[in-house]
């Protein structure tokens, strides 16, 4: 159960070395991303910020031009969270196919990482909406979707905690994880596509990032993914270790 993977290395380095390497690299990249974003990246013009816009009855001033810097951190986190839950769903499917507890552990750990990222996304996003829309919370498709995603991920852990039988818990969690991973994009689509005239739907097309912006964004993206991967790996290793202790205990008893 995972033993072969732990021994295996990549390009001559063991996984351990890679883990710390990537953790460091990820940290450096995200830092560089922030530095670039604040010091070098030009402000995104256009994209609704060219003049003042009326959002939620409030005229948005130029302060949003600076506040948008948070996107260089926020968007990588958001995208990573989504990628990680896809991994969780993948491990869940593998678990249902093989009934190997190792995949259950992987799926659970990946969902934990998702929870971390989703909460980070909500916090950073919220900071931004506070400035841009002058409100802590707006029921905008993206926010709504993340709110739902948070509830789904929280529901995953609530479900886990309320099932006593270990195998049943793993099966239920896997099924729910798959449902959650499918539900999240649907929820994003539907909140966007369903006609509502009540709320302003703020659509922002990518609108072409310039060289240095793109660089900062990509650095942040890769940095975040590296950090997410290392956190995943560390937690996974911890869980596998405790699993092995259990197995050894059981073996000693009989």
């Amino acid at each position: 159960m995972g033993k072969t993977a732990e021994k295996a290395g990549f390009l001559g380095f063991s996984i351990d070395v890679w883990m710390y390497l990537l953790l460091g690299l990820g940290a450096v990249l995200t830092t560089v991303d922030l530095v670039l974003a604040f010091l070098f990246a030009p402000l995104v013009l256009g994209a609704g910020a060219g003049g003042t816009a009326v959002i939620n009855g409030v005229a948005v001033s130029n302060q949003l031009l600076l506040s948008q810097k948070i996107f260089f951190f926020h968007v990588p986190v958001a995208i990573s969270s989504f990628l990680v839950i896809l991994f969780a769903a993948y491990y869940s499917i593998r678990f249902l196919m093989t009934r190997d507890k190792g995949f259950d552990i992987k799926a659970r750990v990946a969902t934990e990482v998702t929870l971390m990222l989703v909460v980070l996304t909500l916090i950073t996003g919220d900071l931004w909406t506070r400035y841009e829309w002058d409100a802590w919370w707006v029921w905008e498709p993206r926010l709504t979707t993340y709110f739902i995603l948070t509830l789904l991920v929280a529901g995953y852990f609530v479900l886990r905690n309320s099932v006593e039988d270990e195998e049943r818990r793993a099966v239920y969690a896997a099924v729910f994880c798959i449902i959650a991973a499918v539900d999240a994009p649907i929820s994003f689509m539907i909140t966007r596509l369903v006609p509502t005239k009540m709320h302003p739907v703020v659509l922002r097309s990518g609108g072409g990032l310039t060289g240095i912006q793109l660089l900062a964004f990509l650095l942040g993206m890769f940095g975040m993914l590296m950090i997410a991967w290392v956190v995943f790996k560390l937690r996974e290793r911890q869980e596998f270790a405790s699993e092995r202790i259990e197995a050894l205990k059981a073996a000693r008893e009989s």
Binding site: R99, E166, E167, A170, E243, E246, A247, K249, A250
Partner: peptide, 11 residues
Amino acid sequence: CGLSRVFGARR
């Protein structure tokens, strides 16, 4: 024949 039902460490 050799029937096992295993989940993690629990047999």
